[in-house]
Nucleic acid binder design. Structure first.
Lengths: 206, 206
DNA sequence: TGAACCATTATTGTTAACAATTAACATTTA
DNA sequence: TAAATGTTAATTGTTAACAATAATGGTTCA
């Protein structure tokens, strides 16, 4: 099995930090990202920064024009989430089918760790953090399938509907519900019922 | 409309040349790509080379391990095409619904132009060109919906399955069939039957 | 013999300087 | 004044040197 690569390059680390900042809304849509600023912030040279920006551009998190640098791309209008919902469903169900018969205790530990962070964020009503962990949870589901193609396509989609995540979260009067709605997914996986898990994911993604 | 960016960076130019070399088989599967070799071959420094390799890795054309460089991916029997087919179906049908009641004669002209080029490519059995025009046709369908997000998501997917296009084309004994299978799509649009068009697209994408 | 160790080489990762391009702004001109 | 032009500053694109890591090959020792 693929070792989870303990030492990651600077570029990859920066991708994750920037992506979290942008998907959660801590860095605003339309904001310009200058290479030298980022290099100073992360205390590295512009090489890894350029690497990270290129990756984020493919994911659709930022947009780049030649010789003009990178802007945080604006999240798609909500009407497109009508399209994305069935797409996400297809992908995440496909992912679950791929890894379903290879589940280990470690997997559940990973997911429970993310969800416990989400719970904390829900309790303190920090919606930026809630979105971040919500997306992180679903990303880790897709990632578990161990298919770079699957993850790439999913990432390209989700980065474009980050606003939809936040806005749907804001509708909850009691944000802890957001956390609670994620529990059945893991429970179904633990109980070993594939069809239940698929059905629950389908109901959940909306 | 988007200007077709006249001056491209070195990285982008190298991406295209390497991708063509790999997909056409001039660079064999499993072959190792060393940065210094490529830098010498293209007479540039390693910067643009790394950029190009990162892009090709994202597209799935090469695989990279940290500190170990890039290998040309072996085209594993693309089990993911099983996933891509329903995704493409969803997206392209969604696109058609969006523009269906705004069709003009100009649209048909665009599509017929692309298809006539495809026909030529089919007749000369130039499979690289066939793929290009096939992708161009479907891209123009999606583009017609006039939604940058839709196009972006579709592009992210297609860049990962370029290889699948080519391989499915190679199965045709008479490549002109590829061209002929595209005609009913336009015919249905011309005749003004949305449900027919959607059904034909669904049958076509397989 | 062959398995473990060390030194050497090859290769990638990172950095910092330099070149080319774009943006900003003052100046000129109609 | 407003448009056009030229100049400067800010920013990205590219390069080449340096650092860190992995592959190679030979030597020793059981």
């Amino acid at each position: 099995m693929n070792e989870p690569q303990l030492v990651r390059g600077l570029g990859e680390q920066i991708v994750e930090r920037l992506r979290e900042d942008i998907l959660s809304g801590r860095i605003a849509e339309g904001e310009r990202l200058r290479e030298v600023d980022l290099a100073k912030r992360f205390s590295v040279s512009r090489g890894p920064i350029r690497e990270a920006l290129q990756q984020l551009a493919w994911e659709g998190v930022v947009e780049t024009d030649r010789n003009k640098g990178a802007l945080v791309s604006t999240s798609a209008p909500n009407e497109i989430s009508e399209l994305i919902i069935p797409l996400r469903c297809t992908i995440e169900k496909y992912a679950i089918r791929l890894f379903f018969d290879q589940l280990t205790e470690e997997d559940f530990l990973t997911w429970e760790t993310i969800l416990s962070k989400m719970k904390q964020a829900c309790e303190s009503k920090d919606f930026a953090l809630i979105s971040e962990h919500d997306i992180a949870f679903h990303r880790s589901l897709v990632k578990r399938a161990n298919s770079p193609d699957l993850l790439a396509i999913w990432s390209a989609m989700v980065s474009r509907i980050r606003r939809h995540f936040r806005e749907s979260h804001l509708r909850y009067q009691n944000p802890v519900q957001i956390y609670e709605e994620h529990l059945p997914i893991i429970e179904a996986l633990r109980e070993g019922s594939l069809s239940d898990a698929l059905q629950i994911i389908e109901d959940h993604i909306e």
